[in-house]
Write a protein that binds this DNA or RNA. Sequence first.
DNA 1: ATATATACCTAAGTTTGTTATGCATCAATA
DNA 2: TATTGATGCATAACAAACTTAGGTATATAT
Lengths: 112, 112
Amino acid sequence: MNNSQLYKGSLSTVLLKLLKENGRMYGYELTQKVKELTTNEVVLNEGALYPALHKLEADGLLTAEVVPVGNRMRKYYAITPKGQTETESRIAELEEFVKHMQLLLGAKLSLG
Amino acid sequence: MNNSQLYKGSLSTVLLKLLKENGRMYGYELTQKVKELTTNEVVLNEGALYPALHKLEADGLLTAEVVPVGNRMRKYYAITPKGQTETESRIAELEEFVKHMQLLLGAKLSLG
DNA sequence: ATATATACCTAAGTTTGTTATGCATCAATA
DNA sequence: TATTGATGCATAACAAACTTAGGTATATAT
């Protein structure tokens, strides 16, 4: 991520969430999806993205599959069963964080 | 902060916000205020809190004043003029982050 | 006495991200 | 056809921001 647009710790949760929604995705695709969803405001930093994906894979939350497309390689990631439950709890945690920020910042945001 | 209740990078913004609202506060008081505002859900970790306050002071955003209360010392912090503008922009940044999280998580939250 | 709350502090280590690279394919265009 | 920008992956050095795990001391309640 760039320019502190995302806070530390939130990246892997966002990746898991998008993979959960979309079945399977590759790294570059994830960067594009994030840009799209945030109207070009959040641009994932590759130096953070790829190590994060590798860690999620190493932790057994994702599986990776390299697929040739033309002469190029794409590395598709998908959530494992273990990753499913972990995804749920991480999303809940991030939502809690958002709730806490609302309380602490005197939120202009409300439940909708 | 404890148990990833807050995300990395948000702590100093929260401290600035509380100091902005309350004029001047000391470290322990800040931990209590955060607990109070989050109905005991967020407990600041002292190992993060004190270094964060020291850094804000070193960066010229806060001033510190040690005041004896009985036989004990309290270190009161207050925002400097430089800290005022910085506080505004950091709060805005954190609000942006919250907005982005809503977009990425498929928010249950809306503008109110 | 002993535990809990108040009140401050730091050092070692970890996690996570930034910055700066490197390599390669493909499409568009000057 | 040479170059630019997009696609697509990766790592290494560094820095920021924490966690963990202590340390010191006073005050209050049991």
